[in-house]
């Protein structure tokens, strides 16, 4: 069973530290390149959303990221004290129209939903808590 807990400031400067930690976690727990890539992508999309949209003040906030793996399952939990936002209920973006009509908004969350098997949201004690899970193939 692997466990990684990260406490990140609400700043995009934290992305490099996030990446380094996820890489080391992936290597330590036998994730292949694709799995590590997808894990990194999912967490970074959600983290970037929180940093960009969750806070109406300019204060420092902490975002808690917990990654665990074991029994063929990868679980990510992201907790923040920003404004209430449920990504699980976000609408699917247009994926088929011509290039002129494509918008980028919502694409990050869509990627997270597609790359993970499950996304669950709850609001608790004025905090957003998002839990994502993914089943890993037997060889991982």
């Amino acid at each position: 069973m692997g466990l990684l807990k990260l406490k990140l400031r609400n700043s995009l400067d934290e992305i490099d530290r996030l990446f380094e930690n996820i890489q080391s976690f992936g290597e330590a727990h036998g994730l292949n390149r694709k799995q590590a890539f997808q894990l990194n992508l999912v967490i970074e999309e959600l983290f970037t959303n929180i940093v960009s949209y969750a806070y109406r003040d300019h204060d420092e906030h902490w975002i808690l990221v917990t990654i665990s793996c074991g029994d063929g399952r990868l679980t990510v939990r992201i907790e923040d004290d920003g404004i209430p936002f449920n990504p699980a209920a976000a609408r699917k973006p247009d994926l088929k129209g011509p290039v002129e009509k494509r918008k980028i908004g919502g694409l990050g969350i869509h990627l997270c939903k597609e790359l993970m098997n499950n996304m669950q949201y709850r609001r608790e004690n004025n905090r957003n808590i998002l839990t994502l899970t993914k089943t890993l193939p037997a060889d991982a």
Binding site: L41, E44, E45
Partner: peptide, 11 residues
């Protein structure tokens, strides 16, 4: 590695 931020530029 690419995220939606990179996709935004290509779009």
């Amino acid at each position: 590695y690419i995220t939606s931020a990179g996709l935004r530029i290509l779009n």
